[in-house]
């Protein structure tokens, strides 16, 4: 084979080119278009007429934005913490079950994964039925049997946020569980055995042996789940629509409303960039963690 015909001499671009083209078309082009729109006065009703920073000024001076960011922060933080905790808990359960050869572990994994494949809108609709406050509503009807409730799951602003978080956790736990399950599978069992021989209790083995080994997974999972949660709006749209008032209107839903109800494409683009910036910050953190691990 001649040197010119040897593909390995062409450098990485030959191999990376197709992937970069596809990724560029799918991810980079929309992002660049959002950047372009953010510096215009474009609306859904007319094409841009000029280049300006007005959309940035409008977003920064929007009196509703601090409230939206606060709601987004609460929703994201609570979701990430609970998703991680539940995902780890279920992964430990399944992993332990696997090691002991208990029957039904595959079914348990499938059950958790079933929620993951439900589309966001359907997830919102399902939980809207569960949280219905009608006298014949799902969860309240069950609570009434034991003499509790009724609970204002969706009409009370604080509880509506809790309901949105529960719906998000129900759907997203599977992703965290998969991450932790894979990580647990990769751990060296010899360390556990050694700790056991040294007389460490189950709690000590978890806190001092298992958790330190999962540090990288916990951090990486947190970042991935954060990005995923920041982009969640479809389930909230179906569950509460962002209400009552703006009690559950997260940044992604606010962006959606700005574009599709206010027809404000440029301000929507700025909000989308803000969302992308928050996600990129999380991704940068992810990259830093990986570098540290290496």
């Amino acid at each position: 084979m001649s040197r010119a015909a040897d593909p390995s001499r062409a450098g990485p671009w030959l191999w990376l080119g197709p992937a970069l083209l596809v990724l560029g078309a799918i991810y980079l082009w929309p992002l660049l278009d959002a950047v372009r729109l953010a510096f215009t006065d474009a609306t859904l009703l007319r094409a841009p007429t000029r280049v300006s920073l007005d959309a940035f000024a409008a977003v920064l001076s929007d009196p509703a934005l601090p409230g939206i960011l606060r709601v987004t922060g609460i929703f994201t933080a609570a979701s990430v913490i609970l998703l991680q905790a539940l995902g780890l808990g279920i992964a430990l359960l399944v992993h332990r079950g696997d090691r002991r050869g208990l029957p039904g572990m595959a079914a348990l994994r499938a059950l958790v994964l079933a929620a993951w494949v439900v589309p966001g809108i359907a997830n919102g609709v399902i939980w809207q039925i569960v949280f219905s406050e009608a006298p014949f509503g799902g969860l309240n009807a069950v609570l009434a049997v034991v003499g509790l409730g009724p609970v204002a799951w969706l009409s009370d602003p604080a509880l509506a946020m809790l309901s949105a978080i529960i719906a998000n956790i129900w759907q997203g736990t599977a992703f965290s569980m998969i991450l932790y399950y894979a990580a647990l599978k990769g751990l060296d069992p010899a360390l556990q055995e050694a700790a056991k021989v040294d007389g460490a209790s189950a709690l000590d083995r978890f806190a001092l042996v298992t958790l330190p080994q999962l540090k990288g997974t916990i951090l990486a999972g947190s970042v991935l789940v954060t990005i995923q949660t920041l982009g969640t709006f479809d389930s909230i749209l179906a569950l509460t629509g962002g209400g009552p008032g703006q009690a559950t209107e997260v940044l992604s839903l606010y962006t959606y409303n700005t574009v599709f109800r206010g027809f404000d494409l440029s301000r929507g683009a700025v909000l989308a960039l803000l969302l992308a910036a928050l996600s990129l910050a999380a991704a940068a953190l992810y990259a830093l963690i990986l570098r540290e691990r290496r």
Partner: peptide, 22 residues
């Protein structure tokens, strides 16, 4: 008018706020 959907959006927010004690 083109602004109506946004007006409706603001009405919904206002109604939700007062029903929650605003």
């Amino acid at each position: 008018v083109a602004i109506y959907p946004e007006i409706a959006n603001q009405i919904e927010i206002a109604i939700g706020a007062v029903l929650s004690g605003g």
